[in-house]
Amino acid sequence: MAAAPDLPLYAYAVVRGDASPPGCRGVLEASVATVRERDVAVLVSRLSSDRVRAKRRDLLAHSDVLQEAHGNGVVLPLRFGMLFDSEEQLCARLIGPRHDELLTLLERFEGVAEMRLRATYRDQESVLAEVVKDNPEILRLRERAHSQGDLVRLGELAAKQYEQRRADDADTILGRLGAHADDTHVDDRDDELAVVKASFLVRTRKRKRFDAELDAVALRLRHLVNFTCTGPLPPHSFVRLGAD
């Protein structure tokens, strides 16, 4: 790396010792290089200022660097926003004491990628229509709910049925796709329409089967659910060090 050792190093990810850095620009428009110790290297940028203020585009740049590096080989993403004072500090504190552990992790994540899935109900009405039509109690209340109490009872029943349907759909999706993944990470839902938000750790050689299963699941639920699948991505949701 270039001189200016007093400026901080931004670290993106752990890669194999012989990996080449990606050609794209990183955070704060800096170029990306590697710091290597034996079989392990870290992708870094030497920042131009000691006063870093990470912004939106830096988050995107961080993602771009990881994405490009992942195209070249196995990548262990580091948490966004990590700075080291110097190459020596990075080696002494990150690679040195954990060299073998990191190498083991690199081997474990070789040939796998994260597939990110978001499944969302298109609208609530369609789901309610499905759950309501088979529920005599709801149909009855719908017909003659006049008091506030009736309405609350109707809404409570409908909400319960809605939640049940959502849980069932989530189970279907997770079960069928999870069968083709080494690991599954489910995120909290952040939206009343969200059915499931999850990441699947999928082997490259199983990608076709995973994709075909996704096609099938999406087809089956297409009258209610929109699916967005992003990947192959670096294993953001799956990397852990023993100490975590």
């Binding site: 901080p8 752990v14 990470a54 988050l59 990881l66 948490r79 700075l83 990150l94 990110r116 995120d187």
Partner: peptide, 27 residues
Amino acid sequence: LADVVDLILDKGLVIDAFVRVAVIGIE
């Protein structure tokens, strides 16, 4: 940005407490 936030923020390896964290004013 929404995708990236979802995917990256709060994920990835955390290395001890030795590291300065740069996410000061992320907007």
